[in-house]
Amino acid sequence: MTEYKLVVVGAGGVGKSALTIQLIQNHFVDEYDPTIEDSYRKQVVIDGETCLLDILDTAGQEEYSAMRDQYMRTGEGFLCVFAINNTKSFEDIHHYREQIKRVKDSEDVPMVLVGNKCDLPSRTVDTKQAQDLARSYGIPFIETSAKTRQGVDDAFYTLVREIRKHKEKMSKDGKKKKKKSKTKCVIM
């Protein structure tokens, strides 16, 4: 069974824990209790493949930012979460993405942009803004509501699919490099 290491990042209060708990335990946590770091595991079937999701729910508070490099190193894919009623959390996505790329030393890291709290009427981040940002990053965008469960499975499952595509691409690139290195030079 394939294991996928997913990391949920975003500013404090955007609903990272609520999304994760909704996926794992099928219930909505409405009281806000700032996370330092929590880890969850769940076995699911995605596109006919049974897999184990190892999900790291991270601290959004700035005082825990020193811990970010460590979990970013171990993560295979990242859910970059903002709240649709919090423009600052949307603007912060850029910083999370840049930090992930720096730590992973790669421009090509599996990510999904997630606009959470889409059940709320007080939207300050337009869907088109988020779609445009995701398009500019070359990553999928999904709106979710941890409260109603809308888009929750889709967000995590899409990230797994992005990781699969990335692994497939990397193995193809690896095979191309191996083929090239088999060419021999004969000096007579």
Results as ranks from 00 to 15, higher is better:
A130N: 06
K167R: 06
Y4N: 11
R68K: 12
Y32T: 01
Q131Y: 05
T183Y: 12
I24Q: 12
Q43I: 04
E98N: 13
K176G: 06
D173R: 14
M67D: 13
I84V: 11
C118R: 10
K172D: 07
A83T: 12
G48E: 08
S39T: 15
K179G: 04
C185S: 13
G15Q: 01
V8L: 08
E31Y: 05
E63I: 03
Q150V: 03
D57P: 00
T35M: 00
Q150N: 10
T35R: 00
A11K: 14
G115Q: 10
A59V: 01
S181G: 05
K167D: 03
H166Q: 09
Q70W: 03
I142P: 02
E31M: 09
D47Y: 03
G60T: 01
C51W: 10
I100P: 03
F156K: 05
L159Y: 01
C185F: 06
Y64D: 14
V9T: 13
F141A: 03
K172C: 14
G10L: 00
D126N: 06
A11D: 13
I36M: 03
S65E: 09
A130Q: 11
G48Q: 10
G15L: 01
E98M: 07
L53W: 03
Q61F: 04
H95K: 13
V45H: 06
V9C: 04
R41I: 04
Q70N: 06
S106W: 10
L56W: 13
L113F: 11
G75C: 12
L52T: 15
F78V: 04
L159R: 01
K177A: 10
K117G: 13
V152L: 10
D33S: 02
L113W: 15
K128F: 05
R102Y: 04
K165Y: 11
V112R: 01
N86D: 13
F82R: 00
Y157K: 12
M170Q: 09
A59F: 00
K42Q: 09
M111S: 02
K176T: 11
S136K: 09
F156T: 05
A130C: 12
G48A: 07
K101P: 01
H27M: 15
I46Y: 11
I55D: 00
M72F: 07
A59M: 02
E49K: 14
L56Q: 06
T2R: 13
T183Q: 12
M170R: 12
E3M: 10
S17E: 00
A155P: 08
G77H: 02
V160R: 10
